[in-house]
Design a protein around this nucleic acid. Structure first.
Lengths: 216, 216
DNA sequence: TAGATTGTTAATCGATTAACAATC
DNA sequence: TAGATTGTTAATCGATTAACAATC
């Protein structure tokens, strides 16, 4: 196993780009095209593809259709992927309504919250009491959970999830979760992302003021 | 300039951890503590701090108060950072209401949308017609923009932003934006993050089925 | 065929980690 | 003082890129 997280993320990017190329009427692409579309070097594309035995034709490039199908298999995009959401606050609600998940074959099959005011068993995605979480997960055999609860509730929620069979978590709480290391965790910290943009903008501005050239 | 994006992201993590240590009543920490809190090695902590001239006391660790203050300066957390949002759909609306930004001193001062049905000049954060974007940006001298519009509108919106002085973009559209390279871009692709979790969960599951040990 | 592109190996690059002298 | 921790240098590690033989 010689591929890392960044490599897998690039596969997803390739897949998105491939769909766009198909929409434009292309039937094949060169490593050059894909590289340009996602912002990497052509060598990177060929290396990644080679790692996953995605092969093309010397001189003929890569067939979009077979590439797409193989990437779908690798990335598990041929099945609808079910997940649950904990936290039906501002962010959680937006995630429930977010079209981007559906478009990518991801389905939030239920949400959970501690706040009884947020519960709603009539909505498209039911919002259930957190007490039901464990039974629900055990019964539905869900493997993927999304955490969109306040910082101090995140760890206990993660513990509950893991205890009921969750093997992967997308965590929006700005804290490092402690989980067994067979549990996959991806963190999304929106404020941090913006903070990071701000840092580099300020940094570049200062560099310009100082008359430095070639700021990137 | 010897520090990269990951390093800056760690600085933000250190800062968050430091605040938590302070809340717990600590007045100083060792590289060990911080490393553990954010999930890196102690050597990494000392290396990062050394890069930014954040110094401690041999044997005495690091003073939380001065560390916090210095990180605030480095990360620009002593000023309120203003930004604008384009796209007042599901995600955009959630971002407007999201408490996490406010908590981190980030203020969305206005939102813009093409859809007249979404406009609202009475709400706390006004939602204005996209036609007003350029004038607004020029007048308010905003440097940071958030893009939460559909995929195909993202590039034109980015172009408008850049033409009116935006120097940093947080992009939620699942596409690579083409901008002058003095413009900082961070991408957040929610579906991709989840897709990535799903990939590794499925991968681990297969590995277990195949009887492989020590899966991480 | 000549020219262009893949697939893969070797070289490079940069980030992380280990190690340890300095020192509180 | 003895012991522990920082700060920094050198070693390691891994990912990216360059280069080029294979070949369509």
């Amino acid at each position: 196993m010689n591929y890392n997280k960044n490599c897998i993320i690039r596969l997803s990017h390739y897949r998105n780009a491939i769909n766009r190329f198909k929409q434009l009427g292309f039937s094949k692409v060169f490593s050059d095209n894909l590289a340009d579309a996602i912002g990497v070097t052509p060598a990177q594309v060929r290396k990644d593809f080679s790692l996953f035995k995605l092969s093309g034709n010397k001189r003929g490039g890569y067939e979009l259709d077979s590439l797409k199908e193989n990437l779908n298999i690798i990335l598990g995009k041929n099945d609808v992927q079910r997940c649950v959401l904990c936290g039906a606050g501002k962010l959680g609600t937006a995630l429930m309504k977010y079209k981007g998940f559906e478009k990518e074959g991801i389905k939030i099959i239920a949400a959970f919250d501690t706040d009884t005011a947020k519960l709603d068993s009539k909505s498209e995605i039911k919002v259930l009491p957190i007490e039901n979480l464990n039974d629900f997960l055990t019964k539905e055999k869900v493997k993927i959970g999304i955490i969109a609860v306040p910082e101090h509730e995140a760890q206990p929620i993660a513990d509950r999830m893991v205890n009921s069979g969750i093997k992967g978590i997308l965590n929006f709480a700005p804290i490092k979760l402690r989980c067994p290391n067979d549990v996959v965790i991806n963190n999304v910290n929106l404020a941090l992302e913006l903070e990071n943009v701000i840092y580099f903008v300020n940094f570049n501005e200062k560099a310009v003021q100082n008359g430095e050239k070639d700021v990137i």
